[in-house]
Write a protein that binds this DNA or RNA. Structure first.
Length: 583
DNA sequence: GCCGTTTTCGGCCCGACTGTTTTCAGTCG
């Protein structure tokens, strides 16, 4: 059975191949849109086929739905196979080279027979590209450099690696004389899990000093472009950063525009057109019925982003929601969710100490949690079978219980320490502690750590076994993925979520930037099914307690509000919930 | 190829930068 990701890749390839063939742009854009939507879906495509809701997925009409069904049933697509006889599929890779689009790819193929990245590299190295029409020595050198850059990096970067770098660059630029206002925009502002490149916006009346400083910040490996309003650099780790400098009077429209997403902005501009305005990054411009600019009609500029939405009759939409996944409709109906914030979080229910593989004592973690404003925490060290992490035997677990009781007396209510465990769901689907031990704990997390490559049926059985145990309160990092280097486990998520909804077991949004698990589309599906969530840090050291911000970002992208989240509840309310379980 | 409080046909967002031109096409976001 093909995965959503595999099918998304096929549609993306089809889009690229149609574009190379010079097909109508609306046709190939449809495939690209479908590809993007499919790769973000929280359920397997097969589940939509079963429900008969395939064509309710935005961007999936009859033709693409038919192709999805064919792919799921036969594992192949006749249309795609036929296309491959007309355009070499490997040209899709060639198009990934910076500066090479569909036209150039076709040019190299037609004129030189180049169909692969390697062939392109050889042709460029041999100086064969420079004599082609509209090419020159400069373009040839740029292509060679881009191919080298491609092999250095692996595509998108995890947000946890990008955000600190981006914030440092922004901070440095804001020290330049004349920098009035500055922010990170693009996918970073929207909080995506992985970031393709960084967009920095700065409002200033004079751009030259900013551009000059920008191309000389530390760790610049290459300057990709330098203009009056936009410059681009690549850092030594292969991350691209774009800086745009704009007039303060246009700050609102520009911030809205460069925050994206592209899909959200297309909808916003359609709304503007319906009101008789063309919208770009600098203003609303009055246009007539066929879209031509009306001469001498006054433009509307927005210094604040809220004004852009206000002008269209919308409330301000939080950046995390701007993916054209229902937020425009919700805004029009006044039904935007009141997204969870840091201020709503009063507890952290997943952390480790020196009892297992953490770096700090229980007392130390509690003090750190107090500094961060938490009212209660739960100590959840690993269980006995996880030897590599110094997992606790039943005896040590009981000793830990005593230490926690003593500490609670000592802290005199400044914080409440609950006793829990992060218990392994073992490879044979049994749990690492017996029920009578679990019954003595305040809070039980069950997690997958081993045998993650098992087939779908086994992984699903393990998750279901944990969910159906009455003492288990939370499934920790449910998919066990690492961003970007370990795929999620293969499970029947429909079955897992249904079971969680029926039993009332909570699911975790793990804030560790390597995990971010559940991811946002799954979190959104969880709350739609009424499944409680927990946003935890899984901290193994005090600084990791600050990763909460990443988990909150995921939650906000998943439309999560405070009422969906267990660790946003006051302690008595949380205890009522926890004690109602396990019976 | 998708989609519909104008539409089942005829629409489908916008501009900067680059390198090659000698006024613009291609690429990118």
């Amino acid at each position: 059975m093909l995965s959503n990701q595999q099918i998304a890749t096929i549609f993306s390839n089809i889009a690229d191949m149609l574009e190379i063939m010079g097909e109508s742009k609306f046709r190939f854009l449809s495939y690209r849109r479908a590809s993007e939507t499919i790769s973000e879906l929280p359920r397997d495509l097969a589940a939509y086929v079963e429900d008969g809701t395939l064509e309710e997925i935005p961007g999936v009409g009859k033709a693409i739905a038919d192709k999805i069904r064919e792919l799921l049933h036969t594992g192949q697509l006749a249309y795609y196979e036929k296309l491959k006889t007309q355009v070499p599929e490997t040209l899709v890779e060639v198009m990934k080279v910076n500066g090479v689009g569909p036209k150039k790819a076709k040019l190299f193929w037609d004129q030189l027979g180049v169909t692969t990245l390697t062939a392109l590299q050889e042709a460029a190295a041999a100086g064969k590209l420079r004599d082609l029409p509209s090419m020159g020595a400069k373009s040839e050198a740029k292509i060679l450099e881009s191919i080298a850059a491609l092999s250095r990096q692996t595509g998108r970067f995890p947000i946890g690696r990008v955000r600190p770098t981006a914030e440092a660059v922004l901070k440095e630029l804001m020290t330049v004389e004349g920098a009035l206002e500055g922010t990170l925009a693009g996918s970073l502002r929207r909080g995506k899990t992985t970031i393709g490149d960084v967009d920095i916006l700065i409002a200033s009346e004079s751009s030259a000093p900013l551009m000059e400083r920008f191309v000389n910040v530390p760790r610049v490996a290459r300057v990709l472009g330098k203009g009056e309003t936009k410059s681009s650099i690549e850092t030594d780790s292969g991350l691209q950063i774009d800086l745009r400098v704009l007039k303060p009077s246009q700050w609102g429209t520009a911030l809205q525009y460069f925050t994206g997403s592209k899909e959200h902005n297309i909808r916003i501009r359609e709304l503007a057109l319906a009101k008789g305005y063309s919208l770009n990054e600098s203003a609303f411009t009055p246009v007539d019925a066929d879209g031509s600019i009306i001469p001498d009609a006054p433009k509307v500029t927005c210094a604040r982003e809220e004004e852009v939405y206000e002008f269209l009759g919308l409330p301000w939409i939080p950046p995390e929601l701007r993916e054209d996944s229902g937020e425009i409709e919700a805004a029009l109906q006044g039904k935007l969710p009141n997204l969870i914030t840091r201020a709503d979080i009063v507890a952290d229910l997943h952390m480790h100490t020196t009892w297992s593989d953490g770096t700090l004592s229980i007392r130390g973690m509690a003090e750190q949690a107090i500094q961060r404003g938490h009212r209660y925490i739960c100590i959840t060290d690993h269980s006995r079978s996880l030897g590599v992490a110094n997992g606790l035997s039943i005896e040590r677990l009981m000793q830990q219980h005593e230490e926690i009781q003593q500490l609670n007396e000592e802290f005199e209510g400044r914080i409440t320490i609950l006793h829990g465990t992060e218990m392994d769901i073992k490879a044979d689907a049994t749990l690492d502690f017996p029920d009578d031990v679990l019954a003595q704990l305040d809070f039980v997390i069950a997690s997958l750590h081993v045998s993650l490559g098992q087939p779908r049926a086994q992984i699903t059985d393990r998750l279901l076994a944990a969910i159906h145990n009455p003492h288990v309160d939370l499934i920790g990092h449910p998919s066990a993925r690492y961003v970007p280097d370990r795929e999620p486990v293969d499970a029947d998520w429909d079955a897992v979520f249904d079971a969680a909804a029926k039993t009332g077991v909570a699911l975790e949004i793990n804030s560790n930037p390597r995990r971010l698990d559940l991811d946002a589309p799954y979190a959104r599906r969880a709350i739609e099914l009424g499944i409680p969530l927990c946003i935890n840090t899984d901290a193994h050291s005090p600084t990791m307690l600050d990763d909460l911000t990443y988990g909150l970002t995921v939650a906000r992208r998943g439309w999560v509000t405070a009422q969906h989240v267990l660790n946003a509840k006051p302690l008595p309310e949380f205890l009522t919930w926890a004690r109602a379980r396990g019976t």
